[in-house]
């Protein structure tokens, strides 16, 4: 349904109601701890990413957890990127 939704977006969406659509894959949403479905605001995505960055950025993990944190942060950054692209 995501694809058809996107097509609908492209056809009907105007700038003002862009944020009320249902963009982004549920896996990306999961990574950032966002609701799996429903409308998404760019501000919410940003806030969620910032929280994850503070938590998982490798700078915050100087010990043995750094490798795991790095992997987690990478996932968060990827999810952030693709959610942002979906929202633009």
């Amino acid at each position: 349904w995501t694809n058809s939704n996107k097509e609908w977006d492209a056809a009907h969406e105007t700038y003002s109601d862009r944020e009320t659509c249902f963009p982004g894959s549920s896996s990306d949403r999961t990574v950032l701890g966002l609701p799996l479905t429903g409308p998404l605001k760019i501000e919410d995505v940003k806030t969620a990413f910032r929280l994850s960055a503070l938590k998982w950025h490798p700078d915050k993990h100087q010990g043995p957890t750094q490798a795991i944190a790095e992997e987690k942060f990478k996932n968060c950054a990827d999810a952030y990127k693709s959610l942002c692209n979906a929202l633009v």
Partner: peptide
């Protein structure tokens, strides 16, 4: 930086030896 909303991050070969050494 790509796109409006910030940093796009891509990772390659995340295996490292230097950080381990540093640790």
């Amino acid at each position: 930086k790509s796109g409006f909303f910030g940093t796009s991050v891509s990772f390659t070969t995340p295996k490292s030896s230097l950080p381990r050494l540093r640790k």
